[in-house]
Structure formats: C-alpha cells, structure tokens
Design a protein around this nucleic acid. Structure first.
Ligand code: FES
Ligand code: FES
Lengths: 151, 151
DNA sequence: TTAAAATAGGATAAAATTATCCGAATTAAA
DNA sequence: TTTAATTCGGATAATTTTATCCTATTTTAA
C-alpha cells in the first residue's frame, strides 16, 4: 500500500520535471549538462533518468547532443514556453485527466462515480496549474534560492 | 509509465471506498453483505477486495461477522461519521500529505521544492475534502441514482 | 586516426502494487 | 451433528513501475 495517497506524479515525472528545470537553468548560461551531472544534481538514479531524458528528447521538450562535450539543453527562447503539462504528457502520455478517480471506465458527467463532483474542481485546478506553470519561473526560483531540487 | 498522473487513489483505496459505500447502503436496511456480493457490485477482484476489507475491519471502519449469513456491515449510527479520510488512512496509512510532490525527503515550507507553493493549496483542498466527505452522503447519492459504483 | 566522453537503446533485474489460491476457523441452519 | 456459507490469513503469482547493466553509436579533441 502506498504511503501517500496523492500520487501527484510518478517517479518518472518527478525526475523529468526536476531534470528539465536543471537543464533550463544551465541553458540560460549556454551550458550543456550531462546525464551524470543531472542525476547528481537532482539525486536520481542515472540509468533510469537516462530513459526519461530520452523520452523528453523524443517529444522535443529538451534536445540532446551525443558524443564528447555533448549533453542536454533547451533552446533559451523556448524555456518560458515549456509548461509542466508538456513534460508530464511526454512522460506519462496524454490521456491525462480522462480517468475516473475511483476507477470507473471513464469519467463521465452523466454517469458519475460517488466522488466525481467532489474531485472535479480539484482536478481542474491541478490541470490548469500544470498548463500555466512554465520552466522559466521554476528555474528562476531555483536560481534565487527560493526553491530546491533535492534533499 | 502511468496513464493518469493524478493517481488520486491506489486501486486498494478505490475498492475500499466503493465497498464501504455499498456496505453503508445495505446497512441502512440492516442487511449484511458478503465479500462476493461486494466484489460483484463494485466490479473488483474478490480476493484482493477481501484483503482490503480485512484492513478496514482491523481499523474499525467496518465490522464483519464470520460464518454462514455473515458478511460486512457498518453500524447505522456511525455511517455519517465515517469520512473518506478514515478509509484512506486505514488502507494507505496515515502519513498522508506529508510527502513532497516532487519526492524531496519531506515537504518543508522552509526548503520547498519547485512546485511546493503551486501544489500546496490543491493538496489542502483535497485533504479537507476527504476529511469532510462522509459515507452517508455518498451512499444517499447512490441510492437516488445520482452516482454509480461501476461501469 | 585514435581515444575518450557522451547519448541511445535493448535486455534484464528489483521492488512495489495488484491479484489469486487455498486451507483454517467460525457461524448458522438443517 | 453435520453441512454449507463465510471471513481470515498465509503463501504465491502476475503486473506495473522503478532501476541497472551493457553494448552500440556519435562526437570532439588530441
Ligand atoms: S466519474 Fe469518477 S471522477 Fe468523474
Ligand atoms: S516541498 Fe515539494 S511539495 Fe512541499
């Protein structure tokens, strides 16, 4: 059984979000970061993080360069347009929010589960938050020391 | 990778909540329900549901009677005082909400992760909802056909 | 041209969650 | 008293998620 009910994100998403923030942070300084550096910074397992970064590259959330002096980056001009929802979609797929909180086949207004109306507003709020939070603001908060990527 | 990010509840919780509602519904009519009837009604795997019901019994959320004509029930007078949070606590433990959305060791106001402030309000809202929703209202909505336990 | 540093990707393993099986214990009715 | 209907609980299996390993490929610099 879980220890936390609100499984906001899968581990994969957690790592993906944190990695993206760290990459953004460095891309402002035109610095490409390696998998190794990322995993160290966000305190994540290297090989698993690699898989997630590959996903993000495939979905064009970040870009990668192979070979020596290679690594991951995000085009500076794009950082402010990358939303949390993009990252989450890339990693967990985009069938987000369509599921019923109690596992009914679909979440359907005309055939609601017992908690449908109670959860709907919360879910919408979360959704709009993800769609309106961009990497730039998150990176700036890290930079200013207002928030942290590990511990 | 998950298909739905907001893993509101574990499967165990989903089944636990739905089962509790169905039991409540029947307890109003002084009818004890069997595991078999519950699993059929909420469309859940029988043996797994049994484990969850055992948890709920141990935590005194519901009560059980062994043997022929046995089954599960909830004392009528208690139905309105059983909150969703009780069910969830019984099944997933009570370290609820203490975890950080991005997996930091603890959710700490003075050492916040990048999404801390964004998620905090949503989480609080969800918490108070769980603490303020009782089985009675959920059961009544099923009874009146306003909500459904399966499909 | 070679060596070193990286990402990419397939295969596999470990851990957690979900699900199943089976026998023991209990209870009520026949 | 026997039988059938049940919950209880331990063991185990299947599935999903998370994590690791190893090799291939790419790229840059020496
Ligand atoms: S039907 Fe369950 S959340 Fe909408
Ligand atoms: S520190 Fe991450 S949610 Fe509070």
């Amino acid at each position: 059984m879980y220890q936390i009910i609100i499984y906001m994100f899968s581990k994969a998403c957690e790592y993906g979000i944190k990695a993206s923030i760290f990459i953004a942070l460095n891309s402002y300084r035109n610095v490409r970061v390696s998998l190794k550096a990322i995993a160290k910074e966000i305190n994540s397992p290297e090989a698993f993080t690699a898989k997630i970064l590959q996903d993000l590259v495939r979905h064009h959330v970040i870009s990668s360069t192979k070979g020596a002096y290679g690594g991951f980056e995000i085009e500076k001009e794009l950082i402010s347009s990358v939303k949390l929802s993009h990252i989450v979609n890339a990693i967990d797929g985009d069938s987000i929010y369509s599921g019923c909180g109690l596992g009914l086949h679909t979440c359907d207004e005309s055939h609601p589960c017992p908690v449908h109306h109670k959860f709907k507003s919360i879910r919408e709020e979360l959704k709009s938050m993800l769609e309106n939070t961009n990497l730039e603001e998150l990176a700036l908060n890290i930079k200013s020391g207002a928030s942290f990527l590990k511990m």
